[in-house]
């Protein structure tokens, strides 16, 4: 598979989760193991641009895919705009859920840009998604922050994407 733009090859036991492959085999410890059972979102990464839970993903199923972790978000000019916004808006306290929130929000913006509705979208047939606070909260509900920094997190995501979903992803 490719991870953050680099080709990687690893022989894995079928039991190995994508999360453990990233952290233990490839040494990419930015992706966090929170609950390890799909309840918290701390392990969120992007597979071909789509957000997934790496703790519930068997690594063997992702052979040949392009994986992006928090280590791959920054560009040559420094942090991703969303990362800067998290700093500007106090989008974290302890920081443990932050990599998952960042990857999840990047994936969320791409979903919104292609018109994927959410449970709170009033008009399911609308072409354009308006990322207001209710939409962001619902779409980010798979990522938990036990410090309670959700207000800052939502503000950071809104500041980055509310103007034009996906444009800065």
């Amino acid at each position: 598979m490719r991870v953050n733009g680099a080709e990687v090859e690893a022989a894995v036991d079928p039991r190995t989760s994508l999360l453990d492959l990233l952290r233990e085999t490839l040494g990419l410890s930015g992706t966090k193991k929170g609950c390890d059972q799909g309840a918290c979102g701390a392990c969120t990464v992007l597979a071909d641009g789509e957000r997934i839970l790496s703790c519930l993903a068997l690594a063997v199923q992702y052979a040949g895919r392009e994986i992006t972790t928090v280590e791959g978000l920054a560009g040559p000019d420094g942090p991703h705009p969303l990362q800067r916004a998290f700093i500007d808006h106090d989008g974290f306290q302890c920081g443990y859920c932050t990599p998952g929130h960042l990857c999840s929000a990047v994936g969320m913006a791409a979903e919104a840009a292609r018109g994927v509705p959410s449970y709170v979208t009033a008009d399911l047939t609308a072409d354009r998604v308006v990322l207001d606070r209710d939409e962001i909260r619902e779409r980010m509900s798979g990522n938990l922050c036990r410090c309670g920094a959700h207000n800052g997190i939502v503000a950071a995501i809104a500041a980055t994407y509310a103007a034009g979903p996906g444009e800065r992803a």
Partner: peptide, 16 residues
């Protein structure tokens, strides 16, 4: 059906 699917799991889980 669209609304029921969107009510289930999280976006990450629905993508998988």
């Amino acid at each position: 059906l669209a609304r029921a699917i969107l009510a289930g799991g999280s976006a990450q889980i629905r993508n998988m």
